[in-house]
Design a binder for these strands. Structure first.
Length: 263
DNA sequence: AAGTGCCCCAACCGCGGGAAG
DNA sequence: ACTTCCCGCGGTTGGGGCACT
């Protein structure tokens, strides 16, 4: 099969994105959408491959991204959905508005998986909570095992300090950008999540200048709807998501993990 | 105060699926 | 029907930064 070569083109930049690149990417997508990721970097004048641009947008720059702490509800939801869906992070992310598959994947691997592991061995063994109480150097557990213990806390605040240190976050964007409601997606994480996000927003008032700067850039006739034509980020939940809604309801009604039916 | 170890997250890599020609 | 191209996904990794010694 002819697989499209990616990123091996000479001269393409890799590694962390600079604020300038972010601005260029955001501005370009706001103006033109992202009809073709592959062509986008060239059109936008970025020395990145389309894949990298897409990832950056989806995981970081998209205005509807929610950053900061995962609420207890969200964490529980992830755990439940993982029970149902396995490592289908994108499907899980579809049930958590504002969260990306990458973020969920990270949270799972760094927190939730370990929370479950000890819980399966020692039922409900509580551990001191909080990142700062992580029990390091417990020997056998290895590099991540200590974090597992810490993450086993009933409510583990997740990476607040770190997220706060991010160079670019959107916090205020989630509400400031016209965004269709995510349909019925995430219906069961609505109210509480909303409130937790509100508090998170207060916590994460970082670099708003980036967004205000970016959004205030002249957009050549770009109005609020300018992003929508190409922007799947604002698309309504898919039919697959509806299917999952069904199974999710089944699951939630039952209150226990069930075997995942073929979707 | 300096050194070391560990955690977390952003980003990369490679593959599979689907659409278009 | 076949080939090519692009998108999206899941797994993995490297570096920054924090906590501890």
């Amino acid at each position: 099969m002819g697989r499209a070569p990616c990123c091996e083109k000479m001269g393409l930049k890799k590694g962390p994105w600079t604020p300038e690149e972010d601005k260029v990417l955001v501005a370009h997508i706001q103006r033109h959408g992202h009809g073709n990721w592959r062509a986008l970097p060239k059109q936008a004048g970025l020395l990145r491959c389309g894949k990298s641009c897409r990832l950056r947008w989806i995981n970081y720059l998209r205005p509807d991204i929610k950053r900061g702490n995962f609420s207890k509800e969200e964490e529980d939801t992830i755990i439940h959905l993982h029970d149902l869906l396995g490592n289908r992070w994108s499907a899980i992310a579809a049930r958590l508005p504002g969260r990306t598959d990458n973020e969920i994947k990270n949270v799972w691997h760094t927190h939730l998986k370990k929370r479950l592991a000890p819980a399966e061995q020692v039922h409900g063994a509580a551990a001191p909570s909080g990142k700062k109480q992580k029990q390091k150097r417990e020997g056998v557990g290895g590099r991540r095992a200590s974090a597992a213990a810490a993450a086993a806390a009933p409510v583990a605040p997740v990476s607040s300090e770190r997220s706060a240190s991010s160079s670019v976050t959107e916090s205020s964007m989630a509400s400031s950008v016209a965004e269709p409601e995510h349909g019925n997606a995430g219906s069961f994480v609505s109210a509480k999540e909303e409130s937790s996000f509100t508090s998170a927003s207060e916590e994460f008032q970082i670099d708003e200048s980036f967004w205000s700067e970016t959004l205030s850039m002249p957009l050549d006739g770009c109005d609020d709807a300018a992003m929508e034509p190409h922007d799947s980020a604002f698309a309504a939940p898919s039919a697959a998501a509806d299917d999952m809604d069904y199974w999710l309801r089944v699951f939630m009604d039952a209150g226990e993990p069930q075997e995942l039916p073929q979707i």
